[in-house]
Amino acid sequence: MFKEYISKFLKLDRRWIFLLLTIVIFVPIIKPLGLPNISIGSNTKRVYDFIEALPEGGFALLSLDYDPSTRPELHPQAIAVIRHCFRKNIRVAIMTFLPGATGLIDEIVEKIPKEYNKKDGIDYVVLPYQPNYVAVMTQLGSDIYGIFRTDTKGRSTKDLPVMKGIKSYKDMSFAMCITGTALLDAWVAYAGDKYKVPMLGGVTAVSQPGYGPYLQKGQLKGLIGGMKGAADYETLLKKLDRGTKGIDSLNLAHFLVLILIITSNIIILITKYL
Protein backbone atom coordinates (compact mmCIF):
# COMPACT_ATOMS: atom_id res chain seq x y z
CA MET A 1 0.00 0.00 0.00
CA PHE A 2 2.72 2.42 1.12
CA LYS A 3 4.93 1.28 -1.75
CA GLU A 4 2.21 1.92 -4.31
CA TYR A 5 1.55 5.28 -2.76
CA ILE A 6 5.11 6.52 -2.95
CA SER A 7 5.86 4.99 -6.34
CA LYS A 8 3.10 7.22 -7.67
CA PHE A 9 5.44 10.12 -7.00
CA LEU A 10 7.78 8.91 -9.70
CA LYS A 11 4.98 9.26 -12.24
CA LEU A 12 4.15 12.75 -11.06
CA ASP A 13 2.99 15.03 -13.88
CA ARG A 14 6.12 16.96 -14.76
CA ARG A 15 4.19 20.20 -14.84
CA TRP A 16 4.16 20.14 -11.04
CA ILE A 17 7.95 20.08 -11.11
CA PHE A 18 7.91 22.98 -13.58
CA LEU A 19 5.71 24.93 -11.19
CA LEU A 20 7.99 24.16 -8.26
CA LEU A 21 11.04 25.38 -10.20
CA THR A 22 9.19 28.55 -11.21
CA ILE A 23 8.45 29.29 -7.56
CA VAL A 24 11.98 28.64 -6.24
CA ILE A 25 13.53 30.92 -8.88
CA PHE A 26 10.85 33.62 -8.91
CA VAL A 27 10.49 34.12 -5.17
CA PRO A 28 14.16 35.09 -4.53
CA ILE A 29 13.92 37.60 -7.41
CA ILE A 30 11.12 39.39 -5.55
CA LYS A 31 12.67 38.86 -2.12
CA PRO A 32 16.47 38.28 -2.33
CA LEU A 33 18.08 35.99 0.26
CA GLY A 34 21.10 38.30 0.37
CA LEU A 35 23.68 35.60 1.14
CA PRO A 36 27.23 36.87 0.63
CA ASN A 37 29.36 35.32 -2.12
CA ILE A 38 32.36 34.21 -0.06
CA SER A 39 34.39 31.70 -2.07
CA ILE A 40 36.08 33.22 -5.12
CA GLY A 41 37.10 30.78 -7.86
CA SER A 42 40.86 30.69 -8.44
CA ASN A 43 40.56 30.93 -12.23
CA THR A 44 38.39 34.04 -12.01
CA LYS A 45 40.97 35.51 -9.63
CA ARG A 46 43.66 34.79 -12.21
CA VAL A 47 41.79 36.90 -14.80
CA TYR A 48 41.38 39.71 -12.28
CA ASP A 49 45.03 39.60 -11.19
CA PHE A 50 46.23 39.51 -14.79
CA ILE A 51 44.33 42.67 -15.75
CA GLU A 52 45.15 44.33 -12.43
CA ALA A 53 48.88 43.88 -13.06
CA LEU A 54 48.78 45.54 -16.51
CA PRO A 55 50.24 49.02 -16.91
CA GLU A 56 47.97 51.92 -17.86
CA GLY A 57 47.48 52.56 -21.58
CA GLY A 58 47.55 48.86 -22.47
CA PHE A 59 45.32 47.41 -25.17
CA ALA A 60 42.70 44.70 -24.71
CA LEU A 61 41.02 42.82 -27.55
CA LEU A 62 37.67 41.47 -26.40
CA SER A 63 35.85 39.00 -28.59
CA LEU A 64 32.30 38.91 -27.24
CA ASP A 65 30.95 35.81 -28.93
CA TYR A 66 27.66 35.23 -27.19
CA ASP A 67 24.07 35.95 -28.16
CA PRO A 68 20.87 36.43 -26.18
CA SER A 69 20.58 32.68 -25.54
CA THR A 70 23.51 32.79 -23.07
CA ARG A 71 23.18 36.43 -22.09
CA PRO A 72 22.37 36.04 -18.35
CA GLU A 73 25.65 34.17 -17.80
CA LEU A 74 28.02 36.01 -20.11
CA HIS A 75 26.76 39.59 -20.28
CA PRO A 76 27.65 40.28 -16.61
CA GLN A 77 31.11 38.78 -17.23
CA ALA A 78 31.73 41.06 -20.20
CA ILE A 79 30.49 44.12 -18.33
CA ALA A 80 32.68 43.36 -15.31
CA VAL A 81 35.81 42.86 -17.42
CA ILE A 82 35.19 46.04 -19.44
CA ARG A 83 34.64 47.98 -16.22
CA HIS A 84 37.95 46.63 -14.93
CA CYS A 85 39.77 47.67 -18.12
CA PHE A 86 38.27 51.16 -18.02
CA ARG A 87 39.17 51.53 -14.38
CA LYS A 88 42.77 50.58 -15.19
CA ASN A 89 42.77 52.96 -18.21
CA ILE A 90 43.31 50.11 -20.63
CA ARG A 91 42.09 50.67 -24.19
CA VAL A 92 39.40 48.26 -25.35
CA ALA A 93 38.52 46.93 -28.81
CA ILE A 94 35.35 44.84 -29.00
CA MET A 95 34.73 42.39 -31.81
CA THR A 96 32.46 39.39 -32.44
CA PHE A 97 31.91 36.33 -34.59
CA LEU A 98 28.27 35.97 -33.60
CA PRO A 99 25.66 38.15 -35.34
CA GLY A 100 23.41 38.00 -32.28
CA ALA A 101 26.14 39.61 -30.18
CA THR A 102 26.07 42.94 -32.01
CA GLY A 103 22.92 44.11 -30.21
CA LEU A 104 24.31 43.09 -26.84
CA ILE A 105 27.58 44.91 -27.48
CA ASP A 106 25.59 48.07 -28.21
CA GLU A 107 23.82 47.67 -24.88
CA ILE A 108 27.22 47.62 -23.17
CA VAL A 109 28.65 50.66 -24.93
CA GLU A 110 25.43 52.57 -24.29
CA LYS A 111 25.95 52.36 -20.52
CA ILE A 112 29.42 51.36 -19.29
CA PRO A 113 31.81 53.91 -20.91
CA LYS A 114 29.73 56.75 -19.42
CA GLU A 115 30.45 55.49 -15.90
CA TYR A 116 34.18 56.02 -16.45
CA ASN A 117 33.94 58.97 -18.81
CA LYS A 118 35.43 56.99 -21.71
CA LYS A 119 35.04 58.15 -25.31
CA ASP A 120 34.25 56.12 -28.43
CA GLY A 121 37.25 56.04 -30.75
CA ILE A 122 39.64 57.34 -28.09
CA ASP A 123 39.32 54.85 -25.25
CA TYR A 124 37.37 52.10 -26.94
CA VAL A 125 36.17 50.96 -30.35
CA VAL A 126 33.53 48.52 -31.57
CA LEU A 127 34.59 46.50 -34.60
CA PRO A 128 32.07 44.98 -37.02
CA TYR A 129 30.91 41.34 -36.99
CA GLN A 130 33.02 38.93 -39.07
CA PRO A 131 31.80 35.55 -40.29
CA ASN A 132 34.93 33.38 -40.55
CA TYR A 133 36.78 33.10 -37.26
CA VAL A 134 39.82 31.17 -38.50
CA ALA A 135 40.47 33.75 -41.21
CA VAL A 136 40.12 36.69 -38.84
CA MET A 137 42.18 35.17 -36.02
CA THR A 138 44.96 34.40 -38.50
CA GLN A 139 44.79 37.84 -40.08
CA LEU A 140 45.09 39.54 -36.70
CA GLY A 141 48.50 37.90 -36.40
CA SER A 142 49.89 40.06 -39.19
CA ASP A 143 47.70 43.11 -39.81
CA ILE A 144 44.45 43.89 -38.04
CA TYR A 145 43.55 46.55 -40.63
CA GLY A 146 43.51 43.92 -43.39
CA ILE A 147 40.13 42.76 -42.05
CA PHE A 148 38.95 45.59 -39.82
CA ARG A 149 39.31 48.54 -42.16
CA THR A 150 36.41 50.39 -40.54
CA ASP A 151 34.62 50.25 -37.21
CA THR A 152 30.85 49.76 -36.87
CA LYS A 153 30.32 53.47 -37.50
CA GLY A 154 32.22 53.38 -40.76
CA ARG A 155 35.26 55.31 -39.49
CA SER A 156 38.70 54.23 -40.66
CA THR A 157 40.09 52.17 -37.78
CA LYS A 158 43.68 53.02 -38.61
CA ASP A 159 43.06 56.70 -37.89
CA LEU A 160 41.33 56.22 -34.54
CA PRO A 161 43.39 57.32 -31.51
CA VAL A 162 42.39 54.15 -29.65
CA MET A 163 44.28 52.04 -32.22
CA LYS A 164 47.53 54.00 -31.98
CA GLY A 165 50.52 51.66 -32.10
CA ILE A 166 48.37 48.58 -32.65
CA LYS A 167 48.96 46.44 -35.72
CA SER A 168 48.79 42.82 -34.61
CA TYR A 169 48.60 40.58 -31.56
CA LYS A 170 52.12 41.45 -30.50
CA ASP A 171 51.05 45.01 -29.72
CA MET A 172 48.18 43.91 -27.48
CA SER A 173 48.26 43.33 -23.71
CA PHE A 174 45.88 40.39 -24.02
CA ALA A 175 42.98 38.94 -25.96
CA MET A 176 39.87 37.63 -24.28
CA CYS A 177 37.03 35.60 -25.68
CA ILE A 178 33.73 35.48 -23.81
CA THR A 179 31.56 32.85 -25.40
CA GLY A 180 28.91 30.17 -25.14
CA THR A 181 30.36 28.39 -28.19
CA ALA A 182 33.62 26.53 -28.84
CA LEU A 183 35.24 29.73 -30.14
CA LEU A 184 37.52 30.00 -27.12
CA ASP A 185 39.21 26.74 -28.21
CA ALA A 186 39.84 28.33 -31.59
CA TRP A 187 41.22 31.49 -29.95
CA VAL A 188 43.66 29.37 -27.94
CA ALA A 189 44.77 27.38 -30.99
CA TYR A 190 44.85 30.06 -33.71
CA ALA A 191 45.82 33.12 -31.66
CA GLY A 192 47.12 32.30 -28.19
CA ASP A 193 49.37 29.37 -29.00
CA LYS A 194 50.38 30.48 -32.49
CA TYR A 195 51.02 34.18 -31.96
CA LYS A 196 51.82 34.01 -28.25
CA VAL A 197 49.24 36.59 -27.20
CA PRO A 198 48.11 36.06 -23.59
CA MET A 199 44.60 34.58 -23.73
CA LEU A 200 41.86 35.00 -21.16
CA GLY A 201 38.44 33.39 -21.36
CA GLY A 202 34.87 33.70 -20.18
CA VAL A 203 32.55 30.77 -20.76
CA THR A 204 29.18 29.34 -19.79
CA ALA A 205 28.99 27.02 -16.82
CA VAL A 206 28.23 24.11 -19.16
CA SER A 207 31.58 24.29 -20.91
CA GLN A 208 33.70 25.49 -17.98
CA PRO A 209 35.01 22.04 -16.84
CA GLY A 210 36.35 21.46 -20.36
CA TYR A 211 38.98 24.19 -20.06
CA GLY A 212 40.96 22.65 -17.19
CA PRO A 213 43.72 21.37 -19.49
CA TYR A 214 44.35 24.79 -21.11
CA LEU A 215 44.46 26.47 -17.70
CA GLN A 216 46.86 23.93 -16.23
CA LYS A 217 49.21 24.21 -19.21
CA GLY A 218 49.04 28.02 -19.14
CA GLN A 219 47.49 28.25 -22.62
CA LEU A 220 44.76 30.20 -20.87
CA LYS A 221 45.89 32.74 -18.27
CA GLY A 222 42.52 32.70 -16.53
CA LEU A 223 38.88 31.80 -16.99
CA ILE A 224 35.55 33.17 -15.79
CA GLY A 225 32.90 30.45 -15.68
CA GLY A 226 29.15 30.99 -15.71
CA MET A 227 27.14 33.29 -13.51
CA LYS A 228 29.18 32.24 -10.47
CA GLY A 229 32.31 33.49 -12.25
CA ALA A 230 30.57 36.76 -13.06
CA ALA A 231 29.52 37.15 -9.41
CA ASP A 232 33.09 36.37 -8.29
CA TYR A 233 34.49 39.01 -10.64
CA GLU A 234 31.99 41.59 -9.43
CA THR A 235 33.02 40.80 -5.85
CA LEU A 236 36.71 41.25 -6.72
CA LEU A 237 35.91 44.47 -8.52
CA LYS A 238 33.80 45.62 -5.56
CA LYS A 239 31.05 46.56 -8.01
CA LEU A 240 28.13 44.21 -7.41
CA ASP A 241 25.70 43.91 -10.31
CA ARG A 242 23.57 41.38 -12.18
CA GLY A 243 25.92 38.41 -11.62
CA THR A 244 25.77 38.70 -7.85
CA LYS A 245 22.04 39.31 -7.92
CA GLY A 246 21.55 36.30 -10.18
CA ILE A 247 23.60 33.86 -8.13
CA ASP A 248 21.58 34.82 -5.07
CA SER A 249 18.36 33.88 -6.85
CA LEU A 250 19.73 30.47 -7.83
CA ASN A 251 20.43 29.28 -4.25
CA LEU A 252 17.14 27.49 -3.72
CA ALA A 253 16.83 26.09 -7.24
CA HIS A 254 20.19 24.29 -6.92
CA PHE A 255 19.01 22.56 -3.80
CA LEU A 256 15.71 21.66 -5.45
CA VAL A 257 17.62 19.60 -8.04
CA LEU A 258 19.61 17.75 -5.39
CA ILE A 259 16.47 17.06 -3.35
CA LEU A 260 14.63 15.75 -6.42
CA ILE A 261 17.46 13.40 -7.42
CA ILE A 262 17.85 12.06 -3.89
CA THR A 263 14.08 11.69 -3.37
CA SER A 264 13.54 9.76 -6.58
CA ASN A 265 16.42 7.39 -5.76
CA ILE A 266 15.18 6.81 -2.20
CA ILE A 267 11.71 6.00 -3.56
CA ILE A 268 13.25 3.46 -5.91
CA LEU A 269 15.27 1.90 -3.08
CA ILE A 270 12.16 1.62 -0.93
CA THR A 271 10.01 0.08 -3.65
CA LYS A 272 12.79 -2.39 -4.49
CA TYR A 273 13.98 -3.54 -1.08
CA LEU A 274 11.20 -2.96 1.40
Binding site: L35, N37, I38, A205, I247, N251, L252, H254
Partner: peptide
Protein backbone atom coordinates in the same frame (compact mmCIF):
# COMPACT_ATOMS: atom_id res chain seq x y z
CA UNK B 1 25.82 21.98 -7.68
CA UNK B 2 26.37 22.92 -4.04
CA UNK B 3 29.65 24.68 -4.67
CA UNK B 4 28.09 27.04 -7.20
CA UNK B 5 25.81 28.89 -4.77
CA UNK B 6 26.51 30.71 -1.50
CA UNK B 7 23.92 28.60 0.33
CA UNK B 8 25.98 25.46 -0.46
CA UNK B 9 29.12 27.06 1.00
CA UNK B 10 27.19 28.07 4.08
Amino acid sequence: IMGRVPLGDL
